[in-house]
Design a binder for these strands. Sequence first.
RNA 1: GGAGAGAUGGCCGAGCGGCUUAAGGCGCACGCUUGGAAAGCGUGUGUACGUUAAUAGCGUACCGAGGGUUCGAAUCCCUCUCUCUCCGCCA
Length: 421
Amino acid sequence: MHDLKALRADPAAFDAALARRGLPAVAESLVKEDEQRRAALAELQEAQARRKGLAKEIGQAKRNGEDTTEIEARGVALRDRIATLEARANEIQKRIDDVLQRLPNQLDASVPDGRDENDNVVVHQRGEVPSFPFEAKQHFELGEALGLMDFAAAGKIAGSRFVMLRGVLARLERALGQFMLDTHTGEFGYEEVTVPLLVNDASMYGTDKLPKFAEDSFHTDDDRWLIPTGEVPLTASVMGDILPAESLPRRMTTLSTCFRSEAGSAGRDVRGMLRQHQFTKCELVSVVAPEESEAEHERMTRAAETVLERLGLPFRRVLLCAGDTGFGAAKTYDLEAWLPGQKAWREVSSCSNTRDFQARRMNARMRREKTTVFVHTLNGSGLAVGRVMIALMEMYQQEDGSIIVPDVLRPYMGGLTVILI
RNA sequence: GGAGAGAUGGCCGAGCGGCUUAAGGCGCACGCUUGGAAAGCGUGUGUACGUUAAUAGCGUACCGAGGGUUCGAAUCCCUCUCUCUCCGCCA
């Protein structure tokens, strides 16, 4: 959500920010609506003040046993007038909100211009793209050959874009999740949280998944949503709160199942488990004071990178350009791991600073000297478990189709060193 | 799923159509007092919007949320949400 006062103070800057996203100017019309809104509000408040006075007068008169039929008649007229004024003020407010709710966050100055992912900027790369002495296979070829990645059974019981992992591959996924959680809680000070996987409208709206992206998530028939990411419940947990300054930064992590309808991605990544309706992700969320969010963004991204480093997976950090940065983000780093079978970099994490964008939608504030300010919220994958498992399978594959278990995961795998064909 | 009881300021708690500008207490802040502290006394103590240079004043709204009745609603009515107790079911 956007700050109407800031818009009023500098309409040109507001439009310039929209232009970076390739969106048309709206400031002039919003400023006009805002003037109407404030005029309507002034009129309404004045009428309400008179109602207050009148009611007091009547109360006084009744106590004195005087006749009040004449004043009460004036009250009737005033009541009708207030109802009209109130309706008008609400209508204008709603019109403004409808526009503002659908406008994306303003981009950080450091975000490069650009239209789409081709204009993203590689910040750095860690690890080398390996050359295999044999033709590297894709994860689903490896998984199906092992008999541990069962798309057929999942299709039968649920449909496409689901998978059933079996045996040590199921355990490998679990091991990865544990390893991520342990790293973030043990080394980076994140509090482990288990969260509801079903949430209400307010949580989805506050984390900017509504109203614009309703079709991307699953809706239940009792009017809840399956969370598209752990970001939603973690971030929305501070909804409506005024947090004491000393309680910040608040860092939370959860290992959760995520659900996406993938409505707009028919035909994309249909093979394998790269793009599923349901997947596991370790999510990081930080709630911080406004002046801390930039540093926190780097810190969070480092936490996510650390997991990839420990797993020995080559990756690169990419700064998303203006056109590729998501609706709620001011700035986003993607982490992309190398998939030898697919011979491509694929996103395994996305770390975003939303600044006060979500906080305004959620009304999440912190205490400041004599006043309150909106907190800043950040979210990042630390990491997408399924996709990291894919990268790991493809990176650690042997010519015979067996897969070596990285050192750091062996304690979580009962000491297993290799997944044999 | 059934029956009942609740939701009031940071916390406890009164109020149940107008005399509420929400009593009183606790906590917190500041001041007085003191060698210092405690106690005591005094003053202050929410959020949002509007107005404004202002986080100063002033105005309006807010007693779980949303509607309604009324000249006037914390108080009456309706719907919803959440909490608690009991029964049923269940991991």
